[in-house]
Design a protein around this nucleic acid. Structure first.
Lengths: 215, 215, 215, 215
DNA sequence: TATGAATGAGCCTTCATTCAT
DNA sequence: AATGAATGAAGGCTCATTCAT
């Protein structure tokens, strides 16, 4: 997977944005990520975008409308795409090598996360308090993707390449460790230096050992 | 330390709170956890507590003062306690049994988290955007506790009871998995049922295997 | 005149004040003088007096009531008394010596002003904005005193001891210079040192020469 | 300097004020002068100006900001100008005629005061209680002007045209009498008629005689 | 398209005052 | 006599949003 470095991959609709709308959009992302949605005023967005405050409301219905323009694509397009790709990668390779599988997944996700950190940060904070957004996440996992993922894990299990635990939990272990790695480095200690190569390698090693079927 | 169910363990100062102050305090926790600090008005807090808005400011200096009364104890008391306990448990037992150690820590933390979920949720969301609160976390780890913790990991290493990785990263693995377990169950999928016993047992197993020194 | 050093001379009613009422009263004077009536809260008064805020309203009807208790005596008793004394001093002495007259008046007023500076400052600021207080001042000059004063100036005129100007204006010259001397030293430049003896002597000299009938 | 009747002479910055900002500004002056700064609410200002309360804060940073827009020009421009004029008048004329000098200064100041009475009233009341404003007055006298003024008085002294008193005190005598004249007529007895020509003439005469070097 | 002007609603906070004890 | 608890009213100020141009 050529992971999410491109802005338009993340926001396909944004291709049709005028320059001005784009300025507003990007300013909002930047400010929401820095201070949070509630702590960002339309006035600040306008100033950062270099346009008048009133203009915001020509391009977006609401202040909330900007937030949704940021968040909706993730739940509706990006997340399903990512997951679809996630399973396709594995399926295509038909590999039963756990280590290789984890290597792929982890690095992929980390790249994606790093490339889209601001938007993800906005997403996280909104998930905490907005029920409707939380529901979007659940619905964002398409049924077929879910099936694919299960198939793959099952395939690994059949090949005795992964531990015989509940598939959901396996997924959560993988996800938690990737997410924990990222959050601790990018959110909690953003100013601290670290040796990424070693840590990621250890992370994969750790997962591989934890999920290894052999006692 | 018999961790986490009691309200007064979390907020030792609250023992001296009058009924009214407690009403305000609990209403604030409830509302902040539900909607976030910024989206909660002092007017709402007053109504929920069943008192007049003005009264809030007799018991707390500021709206921000309420938030701090919620957050400070965690950074100043709870977090140091947890970490101290974390290392003491090992010291007292003089054991280098990784599995036993993890069992203790994990279960303890989960109980604590479940009991204090609302407050922790508030904490998480503020950490995202408030630098000063983020700094509090860093300073919340007392130097001696940090030393103790390192000594213990080193002790485990000497006894070949844990993998030879950077101590900080080892801590992050443990923390990430506990935290990931909790967040996925309590924050992301709060309405979904699951077999806690099995999952926690697996979680410990997973950690133990991942941190096992034997390849 | 044994000028206004005594508190009870200024506030005869205060003799009947209980200790607590007196504490409130004095605290109010002190705070009103320092920050102004509007910028002083009943809370501050209570704290300064070392009593509870509620108690203020047992001893005074209102916050405004405290101000009136401070201001009324001046207009109703003190000012008339002072003026009465003012003329009596001169009349009794039956002097036609301008210099001696001024000496007496100036020093008297300065002593009075210095002794009662806080109250006078409150008075000044209220006179600026409160019509009813301004009216009190006008009515504070009793008709007979006014007559006495005029008689004396006339007497000085007959003896060719003072210039032949309108009596009111002569009074204003005297008053302005005394007042100007005090305000500049005590209100505008309260932290600056000065040689009082010389300045007062010059002030009298200045007035004497300005009002001297001889060209 | 053709002193004092024009609004824009007093507030040069006001030339750039929009109609609305001017409405707010003038309403504030009117209300502050009538009731004092503390007793005037932004709500009242808005109503008097015929605009919404929120609009005030688009044109002025603060409520305090309005006060400063009223007060600052006096300390920063008017006062230095007046003092500069004060000394320049004498310099240019190369005269040591005290009477002529006083005539000029007094009349000029009186015109100025009358034209700008409300603003001056605001100024007076704030000087009583606001330390920072009091300090502004001190700093409002530029060093060179202060030097010029002293030079001039010294020049008059050398020509034996003025009495040999401390320069500061001489200034205070002049200022006190002008100020006293104005306050008594405009503040204390605003409704009383008087013969201005005669009184001002006497005022100058009085000063001239009081400061005359000849005993 | 773009803006400056304007506002209603709401927010946090203070304050004088009342009441039960 | 004295207080702590409590509040209604108002104050300054911010903010998202509308409107005329």
């Amino acid at each position: 997977m050529e992971s999410g470095n491109s802005f338009y991959e993340l926001f396909p609709d944004a291709k049709n944005f005028s320059q001005t709308k784009m300025d507003i959009f990007k300013s909002a992302i930047q400010l929401f990520a820095k201070s949070g949605y509630s702590n960002t005023s339309t006035n600040q967005i306008a100033k950062t975008a270099g346009i008048s405050e009133a203009l915001i409301f020509r391009y977006f219905k609401n202040k909330k409308g900007i937030l949704q323009a940021i968040i909706d694509p993730i739940a509706n397009n990006i997340l399903p795409d990512v997951l679809r790709e996630f399973s396709r990668e594995i399926l295509h390779r038909q590999t039963a090598n756990l280590n290789q599988f984890l290597n792929l997944v982890v690095n992929n996700r980390i790249k994606f996360f790093k490339a889209n950190f601001p938007v993800i940060k906005i997403y996280i904070s909104e998930i905490l308090y907005d029920d409707s957004i939380r529901k979007q996440v659940l619905n964002a996992v398409p049924r077929d993707v879910y099936q694919d993922f299960n198939d793959e894990i099952n395939y690994l299990k059949q090949n005795n390449a992964i531990i015989q635990w509940d598939n959901n939990q396996i997924f959560r272990f993988i996800f938690s460790n990737i997410f924990g790695y990222l959050v601790s480095h990018y959110v909690v200690f953003p100013n601290q230096e670290w040796n990424e190569k070693v840590e990621v390698s250890n992370l994969i090693d750790f997962l591989a050992r934890g999920l290894d079927p052999v006692k």
